[in-house]
Amino acid sequence: MADDVTRKIIEIIAEQAVLEPDQVSLDSTLDDLGIDSLGLVEAVFAIEEAFDISIPFNANDPGDSEFDISNVRSIVEAVKGLIAEKQS
C-alpha cells in the first residue's frame, strides 16, 4: 500500500504525463512516461509546492543533480529524504 507522500508524487507525475495515477508505477522512468524537460521542471515545482521543500535540481544536468530522477521510486526516496531533513 502506497503511503501519502508516494501517492501525492505519483499523482503529480501522472498529471504531467497526462495519465491516470494507476498507470504510473514506481519503476517507471520519466522517459517511459513521456515527460520532457519542461514537464520535469514543472513536476519538480509541483512537488516543492506540495511538500514545502526545496529540491536541488539543475536542468542543465538532470542526471548529475543531487536529486536522483532515474525513476519514480528514486524521486520518492529523494523527496522523503528532503522532508525528513526539513523536519529534523
Partner: peptide, 20 residues
C-alpha cells in the same frame, strides 16, 4: 530560478563542468 537553468557558481561556456 524557476526554469532551473541558472548556475549558482559561475558561467563556464563550452566547459565540461558548465552548469547553467
Amino acid at each position: 530560478e524557476g526554469l532551473r537553468v541558472m548556475s549558482k557558481d559561475g558561467c563556464r561556456p563550452f566547459c565540461k563542468t558548465r552548469n547553467g
